[in-house]
Amino acid sequence: MAESRLRNLGTVFTRIKGLIRGGAMKFEDRPLWYDVYEAFPPKLTPTAERPTVFKEIKDIMYPEDIIRAHFYKHFSSPGVINLVSPTGHTLSQKFVDTFLELAKDSRIPRNQLVQAALDEMAAQGTPLESEANVDIDYRKAGDPVYTNEREPFMPAGPFKWHKRGV
């Protein structure tokens, strides 16, 4: 069978189409996939020299990342994490959930949220101990991450958070 072996020129479809048009291949002898390709062409033309689509790749960050980092700094990684099962939560995730739940209550002072979350977890049967003072100093002067007055555990900087969950 006469065939073009120029793999970098055109696509599989255009090469076969050219052979049919030029008379080197009869239409009846076309490959089995030819009609399928014609009916369902790929979204991107499969040529070797297809121009690259440039797209800025952004960092994916969540508001609770700071809380989670704080947790791992003080409590390292306690316990067993089951990587096989997709269900269940890690200890740090439970801490983050408790923290965010308590943060909705505006009566709790912002700089005591961590201690409040620890107390709450202890009340639920998960006491955690740490050596040092556990509270985050959110209003650390000069730190742009912690200077958002309205929501102290949210950053004020030029970050854009992705919403969690689908």
Binding site: S76, P78, I81, V84, S85, P86, T90
Partner: peptide, 24 residues
């Protein structure tokens, strides 16, 4: 142990789910 007094985490059961794919 000093830092953790008790662990509420469930023990991983590797027998029941042989892989992530299986359970999914």
């Amino acid at each position: 142990r000093r830092h953790v007094q008790s662990l509420p985490l469930e023990q991983p059961n590797f027998r029941q789910s042989s892989s992530v794919f299986d359970s999914v």
